[in-house]
Design a binder for these strands. Structure first.
Length: 860
RNA sequence: GCGGACGUGGCGAAAUUGGCAGACGCGCUAGAUUUAGGUUCUAGUCUCUUCGGAGGUGAAGGUUCAAGUCCUUUCGUCCGCACCA
């Protein structure tokens, strides 16, 4: 055995062994392991940008450790990897560098796959999926047809988010709250276009309700999704308009305040705006509507912006009071939400109050008075519950009951009903780009929009295509591809030129892994139902809404289509923190600097000498603070990189990169190496080791060592399952290694310690563990070994340290026999030096004993 | 504004869920070995101290024999949503 730890050599060696598959446990029931419990461990698959970054390394290391532990614990484990390979960067590369998106993408995949292999990740590569491959997108298209058949895919002309840089539309979820594209960062414009949508709103209630089932998800993510779905319970009420047959419908969560309605407000785009406007107001209204339509959504919804609105001159009638009330239009009312019209109750709604004050609209009677106050003039809206007044016949009713009663009254009059409203909108999925799965429909002048027959799938992307700038989609310009025949009538038809949002591809990839190479079906339901749901999903928090909500939606639709027998795709979710690094920024110029160019003791701009801001920020090229995983692999190896990432911070927290700490982990692996090397050099091996060879009557040093070993087994096992505390698992291994360093080497217990150290290290640092296991004389792989269990008897102690407290303050400790009962403990404590000192001449009022831990004397 | 998370040494962090605060590591200090250096080993490292102790988990109160942990108030940081009627 080499006396020096040489990660480069041993990692290459073992990766080659693993590539030949000789070191794998079968993970498939078809491979003869149907009785084992299944475990599906999944990392969010990457976009093949070309190089792996530290965020990937962290994500995949976490999942790999979990997968490896479960394998050693005897589960059959599915741990696959694939590529989220459609998307704009490929197309942009085509435009900028003249390389075909397909070529660019597959080159990147090649490169990233080999980088992944160098991290020692235990993927089953036979299940690799690539979303841009026709083998995959054929089924993406097939799934689209399922949605179409189910009435869940439709076309609609609508005002959509248009990204002027990438020349495509975006889903609401893909626009940040500053109105910028998640990808290009460009300010999004509003445009009226005919687009494809998926009816995710049909599943709003289920998507919300089933969040309750996701106990293994972070509360934060569940709240974010609930918020996004945005359920409101209320009523739909109709207000007659003076001189018009058509009524104005509003949605309100406060039907109990209907007697206080002072006015109605329509969104400027409301379909009745023009009709309710009187001739005197017509000119002003037209100007206002024009102004509002020129505003972006961002400007319109900007924070602290005063509400703007004008009267239309029209009048409505409050159907409960019979009063005439004015109709206004205002920019704060959104046409997309509810009915695009609201009833104004200034006394009980903060926005209405603000608007009424500003427009000097009358504030009608208070309906739900604030308890214990006599209101002379309202200073703010009162929005809490209370008891109704000014609302005969509902006076005296509690506001919650009044809601139901008034809805019922409205229903009886035929002017309203209970209604539930969601913020969630349908999912806009069409994109005017090339590098995506073509939407499989044909437009026929005679038959209309016709689905491509299943037998004709996939609708292939044409290979021979010119990318000549960021104009309209290249597909729309390729006549040969565009022109086709109608599958129904056989006449001339045109292909749909829009492709699907890449989030469609990633909404079902986890269903494909269980049956990744199926040519006849999207997947065999038996296989997918066997492996699904994913037992542990790991990925970044940035997908809290988009990907995770879409995937849940797909799962529910496919369940309703009879393809799946479960409701939720991801049992447990771990959102791992970001990998951050020290960032140097000139606060004046805004320029970032590479750490290598800066003296950390005195961070100054090398050019101007100005002092720099120093802080931790997510690694990125633009911040000049990235660390290339490649450089770490070359210098220290994958095992050190893995150990550092696991040890440095708990998985869900942000992790600060630190070269000194990486060095520290390398030192630890070196210590482990030397420990084993010395043991082997003295003729030690664990080939014939058995626990039975350990005497039950050990001398104290051996007994202490054995306790340390089995405590480590217990703690590492706890930390690596359930709550996933990899950082403390690593520190337990360090403790075990420290204990072994201090112990005498010539005992069976020492051999046990070496054996356990290597076994427990195996999921975390797979290469060094494989090598050490081998040099210890074992022929089978460490990764196919059974996970060790601790011996309860070894944890038993003869003596414990008893803490002696007086009035809750620790005054000292004594060693006492572990078997001592309460009385005995009290006696030991009283007789001890500490007891003598503090208890003599004192009256003890009470004695509290925590067995095995402490004794507390309450004295006067 | 609404909702959520979090505040512990010089730094990253631990703390059997109410029972010796600071495990483990980084950094630092001193020493030893080797030395051209990286390395390796040993000891120390919350603060104050009259060496008996005393204080200490953002701050202030409270509950308790006992609080980093529970409750109230408050300050600060971060994240999500934000005219959703």
């Amino acid at each position: 055995m080499e006396s020096r730890y040489n990660p480069t050599a041993i990692e290459a060696k073992w990766q080659q062994v693993w590539a030949q598959g000789s070191d794998q446990t079968p993970d498939d029931p078809q491979a003869g392991t149907p009785d084992k419990p299944k475990f599906y461990a999944l990392s969010m698959f990457p976009y093949p940008s070309g190089n792996l970054h530290m965020g990937h390394v962290r994500n995949y290391t976490i999942t790999d450790v979990i997968a490896r532990v479960h394998r050693m614990q005897g589960d059959r484990v599915l741990h696959p990897m694939g590529w989220d390979a459609f998307g704009l960067p490929a197309e942009n590369a085509a435009i900028d560098r003249g390389i075909h998106p397909s070529k660019w993408t597959y080159q990147n995949i090649e490169q990233m796959r080999s980088q992944l292999k160098r991290l020692g990740l235990s993927y089953d590569w036979s299940r690799e999926v690539t979303t841009c491959s026709p083998d995959y997108y054929k089924w993406t298209q097939w799934l689209f047809l399922q949605f179409l058949q189910a009435g869940l895919a439709y076309q609609k002309e609508s005002a959509v988010n248009w990204d002027p840089v990438d020349q495509t539309v975006l889903a609401n979820e893909q626009v940040d709250n500053e109105g910028r594209s998640w990808r290009s960062g460009a300010k999004v414009e509003r445009k009226l276009l005919r687009q494809w949508f998926l009816k995710i709103t049909d599943y709003a209630e289920q998507l919300l309700h089933d969040l309750n089932k996701l106990n293994g998800w972070p509360e934060r993510v569940r709240l974010m999704q609930a918020n996004w779905i945005g359920k409101s319970v209320g009523a739909y009420l109709e207000f007659p308009v003076v001189g018009m047959a058509e009524k104005i419908g509003v949605f309100t969560t406060r039907p109990d305040t209907v007697y206080g309605v002072t006015y109605l407000v329509l969104a400027p785009e409301h379909h009745l705006t023009a009709q309710v406007t009187t001739p005197e107001q017509q000119a002003a209204v037209e100007v206002f509507v024009q102004e509002v339509s020129n505003q972006s959504e961002l400007e319109r919804t900007a924070e602290d912006k005063p509400k703007r609105g004008i009267p239309t001159g029209g009048k409505a009638i409050n159907p409960f009071t019979g009063e005439e009330i004015p109709i206004l239009i205002a920019d704060y009312v959104l046409v997309e939400y509810g009915t695009g019209a609201v009833m104004g109750v200034p006394a009980h709604d903060a926005r209405d109050f603000e608007f009424a004050k500003q427009k000097q609209l009358p504030i009608k009677a208070v309906i739900v008075p604030q308890p214990d106050t006599t209101v002379v003039e309202l200073e703010a809206a009162y929005t809490d519950p209370g008891f109704l007044i000014n609302s005969s016949p509902f006076d005296g009713m509690a506001s919650t009951e009044a809601k139901t009663a008034i809805i019922q009254a409205a229903a009886e009059k035929g002017i309203g009903k209970a209604r539930i409203q969601y913020r969630l909108r349908d999912w806009l999925i069409s994109r005017q780009r090339y590098w995506g799965a073509p939407i499989p429909v044909i437009h026929c002048p005679a038959c209309g929009t016709v689905p491509v027959p299943e037998a004709d799938l996939p609708v292939r992307l044409p290979e021979d295509i010119a990318f000549c700038g960021r104009g309209p989609s290249p597909l729309a310009q390729l006549e040969a591809w565009l022109q086709t025949s109608c599958p129904v009538c056989g006449g001339p038809g045109k292909r749909e030129t829009d492709t699907m949002d890449t989030f469609i591809d990633s909404s079902w990839y986890f269903l494909r892994y269980p049956d990744a190479t199926n040519q006849r079906q999207v997947f065999d339901p038996a296989k997918t139902n066997d492996w699904m749901p994913v037992d542990q999903y790991v990925g970044g928090i940035e997908h809290a809404i988009l990907h995770l909500l879409y995937s849940r939606f797909f799962t529910k639709v496919l369940r309703d289509r009879g393809l799946l027998n479960f409701d939720e795709p991801f049992q447990r979710l771990l959102t791992q923190g970001m990998v951050q690094n020290k960032t140097y920024k000139n606060p004046v110029t805004g320029k970032y600097f590479l750490a290598t160019a800066i003296d950390p003791a005195n961070p100054r701009d090398p050019q101007t000498g100005e002092s720099l801001e120093v802080f931790y920020e997510k690694m990125s090229k633009s911040k000049s603070n990235g660390v290339d995983p490649e450089s770490v692999l070359v210098k220290y190896g994958a095992d050190t990189a893995r150990m550092f990432i696991l040890f440095k911070a708990p998985p869900e927290k942000d992790l600060e990169w630190d070269d000194a700490d990486v060095e520290g982990q390398f030192r630890f692996l070196n210590r482990v190496w030397r420990l084993v090397a010395e043991f082997v050099a003295k003729g030690g091996n664990t080939r014939n080791f058995s626990q039975a060879s350990i005497s039950s009557n050990l001398a104290k040093p051996q007994k202490d060592l054995r306790r340390a070993i089995h405590t480590a087994i217990q703690k590492v096992t706890e930390d690596l399952q359930g709550e996933y505390q990899f950082n403390t698992a690593v520190s337990e291994l360090m403790k075990l290694s420290n204990a072994l360093s201090d112990a005498a080497q010539d005992s069976p217990v020492y051999a046990e310690g070496i054996q356990m150290l290597v076994l427990l290290l195996a999921p975390l640092a797979p290469h060094i563990a494989a090598e050490l296991w081998h040099v210890l004389g074992n022929s089978a792989s460490v990764h196919t070994q059974k996970w060790p269990t601790f011996d309860l008897a070894a944890l038993v102690v003869d003596e414990i340290t008893l803490v002696i407290q007086i009035l809750g303050k620790t005054r000292g400790t004594i060693q006492v026999p572990a078997t001592a009962n309460r009385e005995a403990l009290e006696q030991y404590a009283r007789e001890s030096a500490v007891g003598q000192r503090y208890l003599t001449d004192k009256v003890v009022k009470k004695v509290i004993v925590v067995p095995g831990k402490l004794i507390n004397f309450v004295i006067t």
